[in-house]
Design a protein around this nucleic acid. Structure first.
Lengths: 148, 148
DNA sequence: CATCATGGTCAAGCAGCTTGACCGGTTCGT
DNA sequence: ACGAACCGGTCAAGCTGCTTGACCATGATG
């Protein structure tokens, strides 16, 4: 594979990812959730199943625990999450979604579905699914880090 | 397509893009170009053909012209680009790559090829090419904006 | 030639992150 | 059981890369 093709692939990947991300974010905002940033979405993804500690979140987002804690502060202020005492460790605090946080998460999923809609129309549902499969086989799925 | 699949696709896309980007950056640094960030790569991509003005660059990167100008300052300081008088507009300055800038660009292409290598081994060259084609048909290829 | 648009710069400020120091609770070795 | 090291969380200070706002000089337009 030629070098320039590799660059083109990277650019296409970034453009696609950026496009989807900003569309989803716009969709969430349009559904009435103000002041949410894409980073919050990634936090929600980690918090949704059973909650998580700030340190867990930090590892997941690829930032320091202080940064994660600040992000949690912000989400608390906006009413999307709350801190509860951790059932098994008195040092830790379990961060869980509030009802509003769950609503926002659902909104994000709807917005995501809307955002991929044009792709489905262009490539067909099967192709999109294949695309997704390929990507998931490739991407190590580590911490989500801001890449530039 | 289910909502949760759309989210999974987005996550996979972001993970893949982030993975590639950071690998390329690491590869460039490993080739001896210090202090380069992924953002510089996007600037190089715009500057490479015939140079560009700071305002062009700003539009391409999705930032203000002041931010673009600061980025150019940084690249000048590091010796990768230089500002020349614009041949057709006395207000403007044409930013062009120096020899070192060209070397860095070539290094980035090599690093990109290396970064994609595991994908090729996993999916085969044809599949990767198809993947790339799909993405390019989808992504509007607008300004490259930091997405979160 | 008056007016407005455009490329660029200077200056100030801010958001989101980092590093460093620290406290209280937990875990482990002996 | 007890001291040492470890770990989750917070406070505080600082930095980087960006933004907004004001401004100047040149170019385009009626």
């Amino acid at each position: 594979m030629e070098n320039s093709e590799a660059i083109a692939l990277t650019a296409a990947l970034l453009a696609a990812a950026g496009d989807l991300t900003s569309r989803i974010n716009d969709g969430v905002v349009a559904r009435g959730f103000e002041g949410v940033r894409p980073a919050h979405g990634f936090a929600f993804a980690r918090l949704a199943p059973d909650g998580a500690t700030a340190t867990d979140l930090a590892a997941h987002l690829g930032v320091t625990k202080q940064a994660a804690s600040q992000l949690v502060d912000e989400l608390v202020r906006k009413g999307y999450v709350e801190r509860r005492p951790h059932p098994a460790d008195a040092r830790a605090r379990l961060v869980v979604l509030t009802e509003s946080g769950w609503a926002c998460t659902r909104a994000a999923e709807e917005a995501a579905a809307d955002a991929v809609q044009p792709w489905v129309e262009l490539l067909g549902e099967g192709e999109v699914r294949v695309l997704c499969d390929r990507l998931r086989r490739i991407a190590p799925y580590g911490p989500l880090r801001p890449t530039w």
